[in-house]
Design a protein around this nucleic acid. Structure first.
Lengths: 102, 102
DNA sequence: TTCGTAGTTCGACATAGGTCGTACTACGAT
DNA sequence: ATCGTAGTACGACCTATGTCGAACTACGAA
């Protein structure tokens, strides 16, 4: 869609925010799905029983925390996990979470 | 103090709860301090500008999530990080958080 | 250009939860 | 037995935030 949305730079990512972003069950589910889709997905393609506006809300939280990247693509926005960045900042954290029993 | 407080068993610890417990700045600070004190500390000895009842509240949240153990000792209660348990369930997670810049 | 689709934004609502003070309980020391 | 200390329990308060629907915007297709 229109302009690119703001993302925090690596150095501006704060653990408080990341943990807060991951602490919500809906967002955690989103992150798990994203982890299986290295190419990213459109918001609407994420499988969750929530409204469009709630999706936007959660994706914004993830993006502003530095957990995901969102890039425009046609009429969609493709969301991707910032795997490499998170692994750089907090080695072990992401895998620790993704490997957790759910 | 009186009876032992309830702690979740290893198998009952849920990542949702753990992340939620760690997502609060006050609790994250507590956890960081606990990480430097393998023998544990009394609640009151934790260095934070919050009231007694707020301490109790946060320690309860951490305990119920499975992040810490609380055991009576005289008139105090000694709180300890459940390092081993967390490392077993979510290898890498705790270290990823503790090593994060703060 | 007209329409449909994908997402965002806004405002409203409800609930969760962080904070505190006060009252209470349990234990140890005197 | 009495007192002080450590911590819990309760209730009140207030903010944060998850949720939605409706209106709006941007892009592509026909």
């Amino acid at each position: 869609m229109p302009e690119d949305l703001p993302h925090p730079a690596l150095a501006d990512i704060r653990i408080d925010r990341v943990l807060h972003a991951l602490a919500d069950p809906v967002r955690l589910t989103m992150v798990r799905q994203l982890a299986t889709l290295p190419e990213g997905v459109a918001c609407g393609a994420i499988d969750l029983p929530i409204s469009k506006s709630t999706r936007t809300h959660h994706l914004r939280t993830l993006r502003e925390a530095g957990v995901v990247t969102v890039r425009p693509s046609g009429t969609s926005r493709i969301t991707t996990l910032r795997r490499a960045d998170l692994n750089t900042l907090y080695p072990g954290l992401l895998d620790g979470i993704l490997n957790a029993p759910h």
